[in-house]
């Protein structure tokens, strides 16, 4: 653990775990206590992402909630021009299968602490960032680069929530168009396979066609079982033989006994809680 970087900053010492560098950040000059960003070079063994080149990408931990991508990129461009910044709630493998972002659905703006992948234009940026904490805390907010928090931010968010119905309609229409095409294609495919035996001679029964099969659902399964059971119960004679009679009586007494035991236990518990004092 000796290698863990112990660096001097103005307010004392920032300690970082192995492999990481702590960069203090403050919201503005006025504020006293900095947060620490923990940065390290982004390295993965598998699933390399072309968008995150190994030697130029910096992995940043513990980003305070008021950071935006823009402001991260601005701060880090002090070290070296920044190519791109991605922010997430938790570390995410960049495997390229990112869901296409829609403007209207499933949007969730993260509000807590985040992590980020900062890609510099040159590999030198990573090194510069890693040795940066010598220069004192980074300042996020300045008059030239205001960061919205509080009332201003909420008003902006409210304003953004009022959207253009036309745009929404277009997006919906285009989505539905592709969806309809997809469904149509699937259906066409299913129709083609209808009644045609596969290599081993099996014919697939689908819900389409002349003799549609029942879908195999759990509910249907249960229903069938239930029907069987009822059928069996109907056939059985009750209280016919003497032993059956005896059985039911025995069962009844056993039930009462069981209840009695349960009640005794309840009483014991209540007694323990002194539940019988009417005063």
């Amino acid at each position: 653990m000796a290698a863990s970087g112990v660096k001097c900053v103005r307010n004392g010492e920032a300690v970082a775990p192995l492999g990481y560098t702590a960069i203090p950040v403050k919201f503005s000059e006025k504020h006293q206590s900095p947060h620490y960003l923990y940065v390290k070079e982004h390295k993965v063994r598998e699933g390399r992402d072309p968008k995150r080149p190994q030697n130029r990408t910096l992995f940043v931990l513990n980003i305070p909630p008021y950071f935006t991508e823009e402001c991260l990129s601005r701060l880090f461009s002090n070290f070296c021009p920044v190519q791109s910044v991605e922010m997430y709630e938790k570390p995410k493998a960049g495997d390229g299968t990112e869901t296409p972002r829609t403007k209207f659905f499933n949007i969730k703006t993260p509000l807590g602490f985040q992590v980020a992948y900062v890609v510099f234009k040159r590999p030198a940026g990573v090194q510069a960032a890693k040795s940066s904490s010598l220069q004192g805390p980074l300042i996020i907010f300045s008059d030239s680069h205001p960061v919205q928090t509080g009332i201003h931010k909420w008003i902006a968010r409210y304003t953004a929530s009022i959207m253009d119905p036309g745009e929404l309609k277009t997006e919906v229409d285009s989505f539905m168009q592709t969806y309809d095409q997809k469904v149509a294609k699937e259906e066409a495919k299913a129709e083609k396979e209808e009644g045609v035996p596969d290599k081993e001679g099996w014919v697939k029964v689908t819900r389409k066609g002349r003799r549609p099969g029942l879908p195999w659902t759990e509910a249907a399964n249960l229903r069938a079982l239930e029907r069987e059971k009822r059928k069996r119960a109907r056939k059985e004679l009750l209280n016919f033989y003497a032993w059956q009679h005896r059985e039911t009586k025995r069962e009844h007494i056993a039930q009462l006994r069981k209840k009695f035991e349960e009640d005794k236990q309840k009483i014991a518990l209540m007694r323990a809680h002194r539940k019988f004092r009417p005063y």
């Binding site: 300690v15 970082a16 620490y36």
Partner: peptide, 13 residues
């Protein structure tokens, strides 16, 4: 590591 920092007090991080 959200909102935390490495403690200076202990030898372990």
């Amino acid at each position: 590591m959200k909102g935390r920092m490495v403690s200076k007090l202990s030898s372990e991080p």
